[in-house]
């Protein structure tokens, strides 16, 4: 039996702590798609942070002598209708897209998780109120609601993030509420009550950590939708304002030149595609790695 083995080893030797997060990481590492996604995401974040260092040109410097030039050695991705370097704009556009994805999901989480926790744990009237509110918000299509909110708040990247964050919030409320209701009936929650813990402590310390795995998956997948939403809002002129670069607004100006300057559309389109794919791949991988059935 294990007791015998454990007794013979010196008690002071600490085994590596096999925490749930470490085990999930081990499983995640085995998934190629997820690791590809993770590497792309890390690269994109690095690119966004070091944009000033890597970018070959100034993203907003116009040049009337180099309007809509095809990709060349000087302009790898070509130039746009005002002679700006497309590669530089793509690199700086990463900032807008990633920050919109991450900050808006941050907003959604900060609002949604506490509300879901309260709804799921308190139940009764409070739950009914929060849930009906969530249902009402989910009844509107995601993008329509984001557009309406962004138009109401006024066009700017910051307002677009708020609009996307608020629109993505109900998903987090619903997910957290459902998870909390499932975990609240676990014996260990009952045991936590039996040692005299007050309700808030049970919610925060005993229930919330067990919701985190599902939240992490949802966060990753929602960042992907938020990136698309930001691109859509910027495409419509409700996000990043010119001359600051954004993949969405680049697509908007490119549509007029699709036949004679397709590079203007291809690169931002490809950027959106790859970053969304990366987050989705990571999200799927996380879902499998964190699946409680695999424990």
């Amino acid at each position: 039996m294990m007791a015998g083995v454990a007794l013979s080893s010196p008690a002071t030797v600490a085994e590596p702590v096999d925490s749930p997060s470490r085990r999930a990481w081990r499983r995640l590492k085995k998934r190629r798609g997820a690791m590809f996604g993770l590497i792309v995401i890390v690269a994109l974040i690095a690119l966004a942070i070091c944009a000033d260092l890597v970018s070959p040109h100034d993203p907003i410097k116009q040049s009337y002598s180099a309007v809509r030039k095809a990709p060349s050695l000087q302009h790898w991705f070509g130039t746009d209708e005002l002679g700006r370097d497309v590669l530089a704009r793509i690199i700086f556009g990463t900032r807008a897209s990633l920050s919109a994805g991450i900050i808006s999901v941050g907003i959604a989480m900060l609002l949604g998780v506490p509300l879901g926790l309260i709804a799921g744990y308190c139940g009764g009237f409070i739950d009914a109120l929060i849930s009906r509110f969530t249902d009402a918000m989910l009844a509107c299509p995601f993008l329509i609601l984001a557009i309406a909110l962004a138009a109401f708040l006024g066009p700017s990247l910051g307002n677009a993030m708020i609009a996307i964050g608020v629109t993505a919030m109900p998903v987090f409320i619903r997910l957290t509420r459902g998870q909390v209701m499932g975990i609240a009936v676990e014996t260990y929650v009952e045991a936590a009550r039996a040692i005299g813990n007050p309700p808030w402590r049970i919610a925060v310390r005993h229930i919330l950590p067990n919701v985190l795995p599902q939240l992490l998956v949802q966060i990753t997948l929602t960042i992907a939708s938020a990136i698309i939403a930001e691109a859509s809002l910027s495409f419509l002129g409700l996000g990043q304002q010119p001359p600051a670069p954004s993949w969405g607004s680049m697509l908007n100006s490119a549509q007029r030149f699709l036949t004679n300057a397709p590079w203007m559309a291809v690169w931002p389109g490809l950027s959106i595609f790859i970053s969304v794919l990366a987050f989705n791949l990571l999200g799927d991988g996380l879902r499998d790695a964190l699946d409680p059935k695999n424990r």
């Binding site: 749930p20 260990y188 039996a194 005993h206």
Partner: peptide, 19 residues
């Protein structure tokens, strides 16, 4: 609870928090 009166549950597999 937990101080002067304590409780031990039936299911040891689920009565400890996995986190």
């Amino acid at each position: 609870r937990g101080d002067r009166m304590a409780m031990i549950f039936q299911e040891p597999m689920t009565s400890l928090n996995p986190s």
